[in-house]
Simulated scan of single mutants.
Amino acid sequence: MTRFNRRQFLVGSSVLGALGLAAGSVITWEEVHRHAAAAPLAPGTGILVLVTMYGGNDGINTVIPYADNAYHDARPELSYQPQEVLHLDGQLGLNPAMKGFADLWGGHNLAIVRGVGYPHPDHSHFRSMDIWQTAAPDRPVNAGWIGRWLDATGDDPVRAVNIGPVLPQLAIGEKHTAAALDPASAPLSPELSAASAALAATDPRDSPAQTLVCAGYHAEQAVTQTFSSIGAKPAAPGGNPLAAQLALVGQCIKADVPTQVYSVSLGGFDTHADERRTQQQLLGRLDEAVSAFLTDMAGHPRGRDVVLMAYSEFGRRVAANASQGTDHGTAGPVFVAGARVKGGFYGDEPSLTDLDNGDLKTTVDFRDIYSELLHRVVATDPGPAVGTSRHDLGLIV
């Protein structure tokens, strides 16, 4: 094998993204421990876990207005009867698949923010998710809201971690990105690990492009030291991919990994047909995964530090379509859960009859939720990420 030194490699390196350096450090499950041992997360530091439900979850059949005749009239075959739902009060109930969420509600550790959206809603999955993940409804921007927090607060590559090899837009900043922890990746061999360490070393003769490559390798080294051998790789309980992701997050938290924001996801919520069966199955996976994670955290000293938010890019239209599904809508519920959460309803329940061309009217701007989570959980100034005109809803005690 031909040998070459660091400078020869850097001079010949014209594609910075070849190893993911332009889009954040990709890390493996076997790389999770040394940095945690050297610089553990300080006790009492808030930890935010973001759960993205891709596809546009039908919020009306998630937090169900079972006592509203307009609900049953709009969905004569798709609606749930009062005896089927998990009652939260005399008007609203949870989907029958969400028994764990109902328990969280009963323990006052679940906040349900109703009617969440943004001005001038977009029915495109791609544009609406881009808006939610960048927190910029008025114009397309490159940086996500967590990415802007990273840009504003330093260059530690493990302050935010996405579980999975592809970073969501929310985790990408202009200068810094979250790390991507891919449980399926194989660890670097000792030879490649040593070579990576050598390539991370700086040299005063480096050009700006070479310095950027070295910075990427330096970030990879920091990530490798952080995420090295926490323990055995968790399997997906019952084939539930979200449960596996959250189990991995839980192990990272227990190991005192210095990460304040984790991102996980569950897809499949685009229920244009056969919605009841599909959505109930997906909400069951969400419920199983979140409930198991928060129960596990409740038995650990770090449990008090953890707050989880679950959201989707939009809700669905009020009326069912001809395929026993629903089409792209606007506002929907956001769930915030954890020991520090002040349980209850927040935001006004959208009317099912006073509609905007068949869609629910937004009653809460999603950026207010983001702002409070950054302020109260991450303990940072939310301004650089979501702007200065936001206000707390009182979700976090």
Rank of each mutant, 00 (worst) to 15 (best):
L294C: 13
A310D: 04
D381V: 11
R367I: 08
S351Y: 00
A385K: 02
R390G: 00
V364M: 00
Q324N: 15
G299N: 14
Y311C: 02
A310N: 06
A331D: 02
P301K: 13
F293C: 05
S371I: 05
S389D: 14
N321M: 10
D348E: 14
R302C: 07
P384I: 07
G299F: 02
R316W: 01
A310T: 07
D305H: 02
T330Q: 11
T295Y: 13
F293Q: 01
T326E: 10
A331S: 12
R376H: 10
P301N: 13
R340I: 13
G344V: 03
D354W: 04
H328L: 14
F314K: 09
E288G: 12
T362L: 05
R390L: 02
A379P: 01
G344Y: 03
G347C: 04
A385C: 08
S323H: 12
D354M: 03
P301G: 09
D354P: 08
V318H: 02
S371A: 12
A319W: 12
A292P: 08
G299T: 09
R340D: 10
L355P: 02
G347H: 00
D381W: 13
A331K: 02
L308E: 02
G347P: 03
T326M: 15
E288T: 15
V364W: 00
H300E: 12
A319T: 15
V318I: 09
A289C: 06
G387H: 01
H328R: 12
F335P: 06
D354R: 06
E313L: 07
R317H: 09
T362I: 13
S291T: 14
G303C: 07
S291W: 02
A320R: 10
R302S: 12
D381M: 13
R302W: 09
L352W: 05
A319G: 13
Y311L: 09
Y311P: 01
V290I: 11
L373F: 04
T362G: 00
S371R: 03
R390N: 07
E288P: 06
F366N: 00
S291L: 03
V377G: 04
F293E: 03
A385T: 04
D356G: 11
D356V: 10
S323M: 10
T362Y: 03
I369H: 00
F335A: 10
D296R: 14
S312C: 14
H328N: 12
K361T: 11
R340K: 14
F335K: 06
Y370L: 10
A339K: 11
V364L: 01
V341M: 04
D365T: 04
R376N: 12
R390I: 00
G329L: 12
E288N: 15
E349T: 14
A385N: 09
V341L: 06
T380K: 10
R304G: 10
G325Q: 12
G303P: 05
A310W: 00
V336F: 03
V378C: 10
T362E: 06
R317V: 07
V334L: 11
S371C: 05
D296K: 14
R304Q: 15
S323A: 15
N357Y: 15
L352K: 11
T380M: 08
R340Y: 11
D365L: 06
V336I: 11
P350E: 04
H300C: 05
D327V: 03
